[in-house]
């Protein structure tokens, strides 16, 4: 469109607040040794995007730097807290996670990369938090954690940290397929009085600014995410809830079947990107 091109030029010349969009070309290496895949070819099941990119590329240099060293990454404090929980016996069986799973650096390596995934025994798709709660209620005789609340997120972050650098690889076929389809449907549904879908912001407009926010692809390979905005670790479902709320919609709840389906679908859009959790975002 001619007019748009013209006005864009005028704007760049006239308005100092005009911002350059797009993803940057920086490289993410953690602790100077762990190289992350932050851009790669989109998996075959993604129809409208050729290249998938970590949300890390859309953040400022200062925010990016915080994720490059575990001593600077505030999310690692919560990983330590998750480790304390791992070793603490709870519930009627008097068992800790460690009693069954030993050292998470061995037993949990690669686990987070494959969640959400189908669980045969319970015949449902489980998120990592649902699996943690499954162990607590079924094996430890302990109470389920509240979904996306502090302790659940800390343990999730600790487990996830043992997959950092491994490619996200969730299965979308077999018994998980029906739920994946539901999640896809939700991803493209335009909700709320603003009638916006996830795709409207994170597929049609990634790289563009919406006011002061630099839109990413809305990937979840970096979750749980430490956000500077609220100075804590944030779960996937809480982020979904915030985004749905921002369409002036009635949201779903963390832990709901809808958000489990959406998590499976959105995670499958990251197949091939490195697991980054706990990442740092603004």
């Amino acid at each position: 469109m001619k007019i748009k091109a013209l006005t864009a030029v005028t704007l760049l010349l006239a308005a100092p607040m005009a911002m350059a969009g797009g993803a940057d070309d920086d490289t993410l290496v953690i602790n100077e040794e762990l190289e992350m895949v932050t851009k790669t070819a989109a998996p075959a099941h993604m129809e409208n995007v050729d290249e998938i990119m970590s949300g890390w590329h859309f953040r400022s240099d200062e925010t990016q730097a915080l994720q490059m060293d575990d001593f600077d990454n505030p999310g690692m404090i919560f990983v330590d807290q998750g480790m304390d929980v791992w070793n603490t016996a709870e519930g009627s069986e008097g068992k800790a996670c460690a009693d069954c799973h030993g050292d998470p650096a061995d037993s949990m390596a690669g686990v987070a990369a494959t969640y959400p995934k189908w669980n045969d025994a319970s015949e449902e798709v489980r998120t990592l938090q649902m699996q943690i709660n499954g162990c607590r209620t079924e094996r430890m005789g302990a109470e389920a954690y509240k979904y996306d609340a502090g302790t659940a997120i800390n343990v999730e972050a600790m487990i996830t940290s043992h997959s950092r650098g491994m490619p996200v690889n969730v299965a979308i076929d077999g018994p998980a397929e029906a739920m994946w389809e539901e999640g896809k449907e939700l991803y493209y549904t335009r909700t709320g009085q603003l009638e916006l879908s996830c795709a409207n912001c994170h597929e049609d407009n990634y790289g563009n600014y919406i006011r002061a926010d630099h839109l990413s692809q809305g990937q979840i390979n970096g979750f749980p995410t430490y956000r500077l905005k609220n100075a804590k670790l944030n779960g996937v479902h809480s982020r979904f809830k915030g985004c749905v709320r921002d369409t002036r919609a009635e949201t779903y709840s963390p832990g709901s079947a809808e958000f489990v389906a959406l998590e499976l679908y959105v995670k499958s859009r990251a197949n091939g990107l490195s697991v980054e959790g706990p990442s740092v975002r603004n």
């Binding site: 006005t7 704007l11 607040m17 005009a18 911002m19 563009n208 600014y209 919406i210 839109l215």
Partner: peptide, 11 residues
């Protein structure tokens, strides 16, 4: 902070 999702509206 002017956004970029829609076209610039100058003119």
């Amino acid at each position: 902070f002017h956004g970029e999702v829609g076209p610039a509206l100058d003119g």
